[in-house]
Design a protein around this nucleic acid. Structure first.
Lengths: 170, 170
DNA sequence: TGTTATTCGGATATTTAATATCCGATTTAA
DNA sequence: TTAAATCGGATATTAAATATCCGAATAACA
């Protein structure tokens, strides 16, 4: 059904939340899951994927948690999506033009077929659109469009939940 | 993994093949499956989806088969994709901003959230790119880029397999 | 300096969607 | 009228998305 995993939505919201963290502080997976009211272990899995992709830094053990690994201006929605969903193209060309009674020889298939080519163009348009949106952009929109009282609520929650991260980051 | 079903690939290739059908003739599902060397019953399922979407016409019983329901210039790659995959957006916003300790009230969520909005823009770019490619475009590229001997092969196969369709179309 | 509480990370179940198949409904030709 | 042929919807099977668990690692504290 050409669906994007829910993990992408969760990871994106979690990443936006982490923008507001004070320097040197972090949030643990359980807190991010509780804030968004989603299963803890599954949220943790998404954060692991972000960590592998170098989008967030993590520290384990007591006083562990997550924080962004680079400036919010350097993280795009495509980075988040690719970290969770992978970089593989959505359209998988199985080269069926090489099959059957009129199948082409492999050496005549150096260029991608017309259909695969058209999907490649469309997917590039999709990716480029997501690459144009940074976490900083999203954060700015939230700040402009939210009611002040909501922002105070969020900052209050963050102040209570953000913990000083341990030294050893990865 | 944000994957597009293989059925889309098969349906697209089958549709391009049907462009070359002489007036009043058609191809049965089994022939299209054999030509592309894919499972007959599953190819048939994709053709049913195209039929429901009004992209191809079908006739049942002896001398049944499929042919395009409208000019190749009026059928886009997006039409094929939507017929197989459905029209639902790939990114499903579950409104998690309404969840948790700082959840927003439903009445404050009239507009889509920033993340969902960004994905909507990206998906529109994807769709528009596919909408710009018609079956006629694809067919033209194939005609220009294929070796003449391959085209003769295909036309020969088509001449042998294309059958006069029965009157009652749907 | 050991011990314990805490949290991440990878491996493991469960549920849902994609893939593949089968059999009845319908049409035509003989 | 009969029989052969073909589509259409319903049904299995396999893979992926979703959810969960337990061991590895870190730091605070006695």
């Amino acid at each position: 059904m050409m669906q994007i995993s829910k993990g992408v939505e969760w990871a994106a919201h979690a990443a936006v939340m982490m923008i507001a963290l004070p320097e040197g502080r972090g949030l643990k997976a359980e807190a991010l899951a509780r804030y968004h009211e989603v299963p803890t272990a599954y949220m943790a899995k998404q954060l692991q994927a972000l960590s592998k992709a170098g989008i967030v830094q993590s520290s384990r053990g007591a006083h562990g948690g997550y924080r962004l690994a680079k400036p919010a201006t350097d993280i795009t929605l495509w980075d988040i999506t690719a970290a969770i969903e992978g970089h593989a193209p959505a359209f998988r060309c199985t080269e069926i033009r090489q099959n059957g009674p009129c199948g082409l020889k492999k050496k005549d298939c150096k260029n991608p077929c017309q259909i695969a080519g058209a999907f490649a163009v469309a997917e590039r348009a999709f990716r480029d659109s997501l690459k144009a949106v940074t976490l900083a952009d999203l954060s700015g929109q939230v700040l402009r469009e939210s009611k002040p009282e909501h922002l105070t609520d969020v900052m209050k929650w963050l102040g209570a939940e953000a913990v000083p991260l341990s030294k050893k980051l990865s």
